[in-house]
């Protein structure tokens, strides 16, 4: 962890200003993405994991806005670009988007332009970032389509998304995210909409390309099975904050945060005991009604009565580099009223 990370998020707050009130989708997110490794961001729906990915590229939809915090991007260990200081539509931001940081999305059905050929959608990206000729962009597109395992790429170049299967489309998405050789790939639940077999193939493909290109991957998912397959490090998020961050072994074998532990108890294991699976009690609170103190306390099985309702824990770092935000591990500040 001594090496400069690729991306550092510091106290990032992204809020959505709706007619009904302010939704604090991210409420002080702090973590870093190391170079060349795979970081999985996990959590239930609504915990802010997708918004984190989009905040990094400054493509949060209206009425959402980054209101506080910094996103530091280090293209090389000695350079620093503060992404939050760039205007979302500026030229420099656009160079980072798609060029330095690629992104692939959950819905391969709807995330590709419906009436443009896949060839055009990829080669357009290459041309913007690399400034190559049309013919060269076309050649590179064909190479990429071949690389992600699309048969007969020369003819598929002219195909429209609706002519491809879900798995094929997701391959196209991957080619689109990687075609400019980014330093970081943000994958926002890329396998959720796919069947299990295709899912495995796509995961292998991402893993393979990552090793080949020595790129970092930030993999956003709620599927702990996927995490086990692909992650080096894991960030567990709850209600717009980081609950725990640790290496993948620690998360699975010795999770510290009660929320992580509850998550682990809720996954079925091969050869495990025949007891019924545990569900986390209660529901994710409504975004307007964030509980006071530690936001997990109403659902926490290890809640310390009289403390967790009022005290907001800090992120505490352990010797192995793990971080946990929980009163069970000491560090705390008084909740501000």
């Amino acid at each position: 962890m001594s090496e400069t990370p690729l991306i550092e998020l510091e106290g990032l707050r992204t809020h959505f200003f709706t007619d009904e009130g302010v939704v604090k989708a991210l409420d002080g997110v702090t973590f870093s993405v190391p170079r060349g490794r795979t970081l999985c961001v996990v959590g239930e729906s609504g915990c802010g994991k997708s918004v984190t990915g989009r905040s990094i590229l400054q493509i949060v939809d209206r009425p959402g806005r980054i209101v506080e915090g910094r996103i530091l991007y280090h293209p090389t260990p000695h350079e620093t670009i503060d992404i939050t200081a760039l205007r979302p539509m500026s030229r420099q931001m656009r160079t980072i988007r798609g060029g330095e940081i690629g992104m692939i999305f959950q819905e391969p059905m709807t995330s590709l332009g419906p009436i443009q050929t896949i060839g055009k959608q990829i080669s357009e990206t290459i041309r913007i970032h690399k400034g190559v000729s049309k013919a060269e962009a076309r050649n590179q597109t064909i190479e990429w389509l071949a690389r992600v395992g699309i048969p007969r790429p020369e003819t598929r170049l002219g195909a429209y998304p609706f002519e491809l299967s879900g798995g094929m489309r997701q391959r196209v998405m991957i080619a689109l995210g990687l075609c400019c050789r980014p330093k970081l790939l943000i994958a926002d639940e890329p396998t959720t909409a796919l069947d299990v077999t295709t899912q495995a193939v796509i995961l292998d493909l991402i893993r393979e390309l990552q090793e080949e290109m020595d790129m970092a991957v930030m993999f956003i998912t709620h599927d702990l099975g996927v995490v086990a397959q692909i992650a080096d490090d894991v960030v567990v998020m709850y209600l717009g904050r980081v609950a725990e961050r640790a290496g993948v072994e620690t998360i699975f074998d010795a999770p510290r945060h009660p929320y992580t532990r509850a998550l682990m108890r809720s996954i079925p294991r091969l050869g495990g005991s025949r007891e019924p699976l545990e569900a986390i009690r209660g529901m994710v609170p409504h975004p307007f009604r964030r509980p006071s103190g530690c936001s997990f306390h109403p659902r926490c099985p290890e809640v310390i009565a009289g403390r967790c309702e009022s005290l907001d824990p800090d992120l505490r770092e352990f010797g192995d580099g793990s971080q946990v935000r929980c009163l069970l591990y000491g560090s705390q500040t008084e909740a501000q009223q």
Partner: peptide
């Protein structure tokens, strides 16, 4: 979603 994709490409 495809608009977000296109934006994420840096268009």
């Amino acid at each position: 979603p495809y608009v977000v994709t296109a934006r994420a490409k840096g268009l």
